[in-house]
Simulated assay, not measured.
Amino acid sequence: MNKIKILYAEDDETLAYLTKDNLEQSGYSIFHFSDGNSCLENFKKENFDICIFDIMMPKMDGFELATEIRKINTDIPIIFLSAKTLKEDKLKGLRLGADDYLVKPFSIEELILKIEVFLKRSNKNLIKQNHQYSIGKYNFDSDNYLVFNDDEKINLTQRESELLKLFLDNKNIVLKREEILKSLWGDDDYFMGRSLDVFISRLRKILANENGIAIENLHGIGFKFKLEL
């Protein structure tokens, strides 16, 4: 599984070194920049899983940086780390789209806990990075939304492909219904739940003739993709 990539902006060299070192020891891949402009430029080039920003930085402060990030990506978690303790500053950060605000000096253990909470919420730990799969007589290409073999090609929608990938990455494991919905849609409301049922019905039809494969419905809980091949 690929490492979680964290975009980190902090102009205090000592604090940045200590924070980066602790996070890397916890298994994260840290991309550190000392000003907002450099941070934003690299955000445009790379895919990150979470952002951690200081507020008072040269060239572009953390508030401006978060504003620009939100124009590009409305979902990525953003955590502010700042010496600014006024309630007004915290509220401003949250209104700009930050998910949390920790005041310096902060506990590295608390920061790591916050990171884990937001990654779990966005299901970054749930979705792994495989792209090619074998399912009985079929192959599955998740990048191209395609289930195929030598005789047949079945095109999936993006959501169907994401759902099948999620099941295969977690085969023989119970996935709660709300976990699936939040992973694919970011929410678990009624209408998305109805869409999920439609997609599962379609996947069942595609795999109906495959012995040893089943999508088991656990009433009131969720689903299990059973693979006994």
Score class of each variant (00 low, 15 high):
57 M>W: 06
72 I>V: 13
67 T>E: 14
71 K>E: 10
69 I>Q: 05
74 T>L: 12
52 I>W: 05
46 E>D: 09
77 P>A: 10
46 E>K: 06
82 S>L: 00
71 K>R: 13
82 S>V: 00
44 K>T: 07
75 D>P: 00
61 D>V: 06
72 I>H: 08
45 K>H: 05
48 F>R: 08
45 K>I: 12
49 D>S: 09
49 D>F: 00
53 F>Q: 04
90 K>Y: 04
49 D>T: 04
45 K>W: 04
47 N>K: 14
62 G>R: 03
52 I>C: 06
44 K>I: 11
58 P>F: 04
56 M>T: 07
90 K>P: 01
83 A>I: 12
43 F>S: 06
57 M>G: 06
50 I>A: 01
53 F>V: 07
55 I>D: 05
83 A>P: 11
43 F>G: 05
41 E>H: 09
59 K>Q: 10
68 E>V: 02
84 K>T: 09
79 I>W: 10
57 M>C: 09
59 K>F: 11
63 F>V: 11
70 R>T: 01
44 K>R: 14
59 K>H: 12
79 I>F: 08
65 L>N: 03
80 F>Q: 05
73 N>D: 15
43 F>N: 08
85 T>K: 15
74 T>K: 15
67 T>I: 04
87 K>H: 13
60 M>A: 11
80 F>N: 02
49 D>E: 08
80 F>H: 06
83 A>R: 10
74 T>A: 14
84 K>I: 14
69 I>G: 06
83 A>Q: 13
52 I>F: 08
88 E>D: 11
42 N>L: 09
41 E>V: 10
76 I>A: 00
76 I>T: 01
63 F>K: 11
62 G>F: 07
53 F>S: 12
87 K>I: 14
72 I>N: 07
63 F>H: 13
61 D>S: 06
47 N>C: 09
54 D>H: 05
66 A>K: 02
89 D>I: 00
69 I>K: 06
56 M>I: 08
59 K>A: 07
58 P>H: 02
80 F>Y: 14
72 I>E: 11
62 G>E: 08
88 E>L: 11
69 I>R: 05
85 T>V: 13
45 K>Q: 13
52 I>T: 06
75 D>E: 06
44 K>D: 04
49 D>M: 02
90 K>I: 13
46 E>I: 07
88 E>F: 05
50 I>W: 01
84 K>Q: 15
75 D>C: 00
72 I>M: 13
48 F>C: 02
85 T>W: 07
60 M>D: 10
89 D>L: 00
61 D>T: 04
56 M>N: 07
46 E>Y: 11
90 K>E: 14
86 L>K: 15
47 N>Q: 12
41 E>W: 04
76 I>M: 00
78 I>F: 07
68 E>Q: 12
41 E>M: 12
63 F>C: 10
80 F>D: 01
69 I>L: 13
44 K>Q: 14
52 I>E: 05
78 I>P: 02
53 F>A: 03
64 E>K: 12
89 D>C: 04
88 E>V: 12
85 T>Q: 15
77 P>R: 12
44 K>Y: 10
71 K>L: 12
88 E>K: 14
58 P>A: 07
69 I>N: 03
56 M>K: 09
